[in-house]
Write a protein that binds this DNA or RNA. Structure first.
Lengths: 232, 232
DNA sequence: TGCCTAAACTTGTCATACAACTTCACACAT
DNA sequence: ATGTGTGAAGTTGTATGACAAGTTTAGGCA
């Protein structure tokens, strides 16, 4: 239990120190950090350490080095603490967990989209729906694009952001499309009609209807995953 | 517009390559990566590049180097791509965006909690509610704990995770509690009754009621923020 | 004044060397 | 045969020096 004290390396200490300085406002967004040479002299470490600490900060999205120019501060606050850490995309139960989360987010998105959707967003949604109709069955990208266009119609950038994040987690899993039952025409028709219902409700500015249609759609996806879970 | 093509460095390319290999399962969690020397020879780059790429992977939580032993793979899936990047906690509009997201997540959580809440979770929720009653007005922690206990009652760890993530973003902002109007007894009583309604519905296993009560509660919070926005 | 060029500076990469630590095999003693 | 200790080999952490590639700046020249 006391093993977690693992003697932080110089690079780690320097990274934390720099991150703290950035968070404290010593270096503000847009500022240029001292050059690697200066940092090295200041902290009494080699350039190797400096570079590794900066690489870590870059990974955290805090800074952005520009060759020949310097290292510039991007964001003041460290990026929010890693959610979805223990997600094992190979496990169906993990997929169901994510789907439940998506349900919450997307149902709300559908409701907001119904209230706020403008002509331009309507066009995008309809275009995504048309592409989905034409797309090959089980085309996850077309499906995702429709959901994304709805999220964008909320005019709240956090919704498409979240969808992207969750989508990146779900894409690796093709269990549903691989399952034999999922390729039946009946299944495809059901999915299509669910999509139509969602879009129709949004275009009708029917908030409650949009929520309900989206909930039906995603609950259906959950149910299909659960069935697979039982079959395994 | 074409500036985003910024000539990726060798370290970046190698990082992406290694991340892809990890995602593809070439290196599985628990495995040891080839040593820096071997990777360097294999890819025809210097150890500097290798180390920087690995530093980035470590920052992403994908690997964990152990001095003298090797670099070990932790997680197979890259941690979800940084959401909530442009959130400026000083801007009320950002807070409202986050609140809308929270609404989606928490409404779903309340619904699931009503279905799945067991005796132990009921106790935790009631305890959190009691503490909130006793707590000083505007005690964000007590409020957060109640919401958290509900999220945990879903038995889906992603909900409390998300709440933690969003909570970390919202805590810095105390605008609502600082606003003069928010300290009136009427306001406190309203908040308390909203909380009671949510808990009561969950204990009654009333899914729709729990959703609705949670939605009312969070929509109320949004409305209060919006009022502040107008006053500014 | 305006433009052009070259020097100075900065990050990216390579190479080498050593320190600190871990692992593993082999010799040795029990 | 078994347990133990020792050391060699392998690995990451750090330092140093050098050069390539790009940017900035100052100064010279028209």
């Amino acid at each position: 239990m006391t093993q977690d004290t693992k003697a932080p390396t110089l690079a780690e200490k320097l990274r934390d120190q720099l991150a703290a300085q950035i968070a404290a406002g010593t270096f503000k967004p847009g500022d240029r950090l001292p050059s690697e040479a200066m940092l090295g002299e200041e902290h009494g470490v080699s350039r190797t350490v400096i570079r590794e600490a900066i690489a870590a900060l870059r990974g955290d999205g805090l800074v952005m080095p520009k060759r020949g120019s310097g290292v510039f501060v991007l964001s003041q606050s460290p990026r929010p603490l890693v959610p979805l850490q223990g997600v094992d995309t190979a496990r169906l139960s993990s997929m169901i967990e994510l789907l439940e989360l998506r349900t919450g987010i997307e149902v709300e998105a559908a409701g907001l989209a119904a209230q706020r959707c403008g002509p331009k967003e309507e066009e995008l949604i309809l275009s995504a729906l048309a592409q989905l109709r034409d797309a090959a069955q089980g085309d996850h990208e077309a499906d995702f694009n429709l959901h994304l266009s709805i999220a964008e119609a909320t005019h709240n950038p956090r919704f498409p952001e979240m969808l992207h994040m969750l989508g990146a987690q779900m894409i690796p899993r093709h269990a549903v499309s691989d399952a034999p039952e999922s390729v039946t025409p009946e299944y495809a028709a059901l999915l299509a009609s669910e999509h139509e219902d969602i879009v129709q409700a949004i275009l009708d500015k029917d908030e409650a209807g949009a929520r309900s249609a989206m909930r039906v759609h995603l609950k259906g996806a959950q149910a299909r995953y659960r069935r697979l879970l039982r079959q395994q």
